[in-house]
Simulated scan of single mutants.
Amino acid sequence: MQQLELSRLAQEAPLRVLLVHAGEPDSLTWSGLVQPLRLAAKVLGPERLHVDVRTPDKFAADQRHWHLVLLVADEAEAGLRPANLRTVVSRCRAAPCWGGVGAGVLWLAEAGALNGARAALPWSLYPDVDMRADQALLSPHLYEIDGARLTSCGGAASIDFALTLVDLLFGATVQAQVKEILCVDRVRGPDERQRVALQARFGVLQPKLTEAVTLMEANIEEPLSTDDIAQLAGVSRRQLERLFKQYLGSLPSRYYLELRLQRARQLLRDTNYSIVQVGLMCGFSSGSHFSTAFGALFGNTPREERQRKLSQ
């Protein structure tokens, strides 16, 4: 779906991108987004890509047609909502593709514009989510491309988000040129998560989810079943699965498995326990199951992980 929506835009010549800047000019959220896009415009030329910037006030009065519009503000500025936010959101939605970055994601969600869409909201703004904004499928990922609606948590992830847009719209060769100019070696994918403590992200907003994950973390060696976790957390299995899918983008069983494997990799790197011992300590009674699951997640076997440690 994301390829389809953006590939349609790539046929436009020039592709007109507007960034509605509602924050400070020196924030990482802003510079990480605008610089890769401006460099891409320089590489491609004005006949292929045009990138412009407006304040919310100027955008609200602007009747020109844009193909892609993003509402951008640093998460620290979440309380400084534009006075004309309703008009700004309406104008954003008039574009074929649109979305928000940083605090802009929260504002769009509060306006009901992201209902039913996956939205990458900065983790620090989860406590600010009201009932209306919660109709969005809030995601812990760095960014989300859900059809025509695009969101990013901002900060350093703005760079990954912008470079991904360049790739999807204009191809890997143009992205590589921009990466080279920026000295960027690797672009993080949309499936990578914001690396923050679960308690900080969801503790107040979703105590049942936090309780379920705490149970998982406390029972690595002898894993609990999903039914047991649901019962101990005081929710139904179906409700637990919904919470994990909505807020963590995964099923409880998959999230639990990844927790155990992350713990296994840490033990392989930081201790001298044998591979068999590490597997048992992380709830794997079968060595072949441990090796297969480890390889599927990390791309190498437990033995190769241990060898990497020994060779350092």
Rank of each mutant, 00 (worst) to 15 (best):
V20Q: 07
G79W: 00
I145G: 04
G189N: 06
R238F: 01
R86T: 06
P122S: 08
A293W: 10
A172G: 09
A119T: 03
M131T: 14
G283C: 13
R132N: 13
T271M: 03
D74G: 07
G279M: 11
G171A: 06
G189D: 05
A176K: 08
R149Q: 05
V178D: 14
L108K: 00
R188H: 09
C97V: 06
V88F: 07
K42V: 13
P82K: 12
V178Q: 11
R8I: 13
G279E: 03
L125V: 08
Q194T: 12
E180F: 07
C282V: 10
G112W: 12
L121C: 02
A172Q: 15
S225I: 04
H289P: 00
L33Q: 08
A76F: 01
D191Y: 12
R16C: 12
W66K: 13
T151F: 14
D160P: 14
R269M: 15
S152Y: 11
A148Q: 06
V178I: 05
E47I: 00
Q194W: 15
G100W: 02
S285C: 12
Q199I: 10
A60M: 06
L163F: 07
R303H: 04
V34R: 14
P190K: 10
A296Q: 14
T151A: 15
Q175P: 01
A200Q: 06
P223D: 02
L169P: 04
R118L: 05
A293G: 04
G295P: 01
E258N: 07
I229G: 03
G234S: 02
S158Q: 02
A293L: 08
M216E: 10
A156L: 15
Q312N: 10
D270H: 08
Q3Y: 07
L70P: 01
T214A: 15
G45T: 05
A296G: 01
N115R: 13
F294W: 06
S124N: 08
Y255G: 12
V53S: 09
G45H: 11
E221A: 14
E222D: 10
A76I: 09
L106D: 04
H50R: 14
Y143W: 05
R201N: 04
S253E: 14
R186P: 02
A103V: 04
H67C: 00
E241N: 12
C92H: 02
V178P: 01
P46E: 11
L28Q: 04
S253W: 03
D62E: 03
T214D: 03
I181H: 15
E304Q: 14
G104S: 03
Q206P: 13
R188K: 08
L251E: 15
R242Q: 15
C92V: 11
V276F: 14
A61S: 13
L142F: 11
F298L: 07
S27C: 02
N219Y: 06
Q307W: 01
H67T: 00
K309W: 08
Q206C: 12
E110R: 00
R81I: 12
L44T: 01
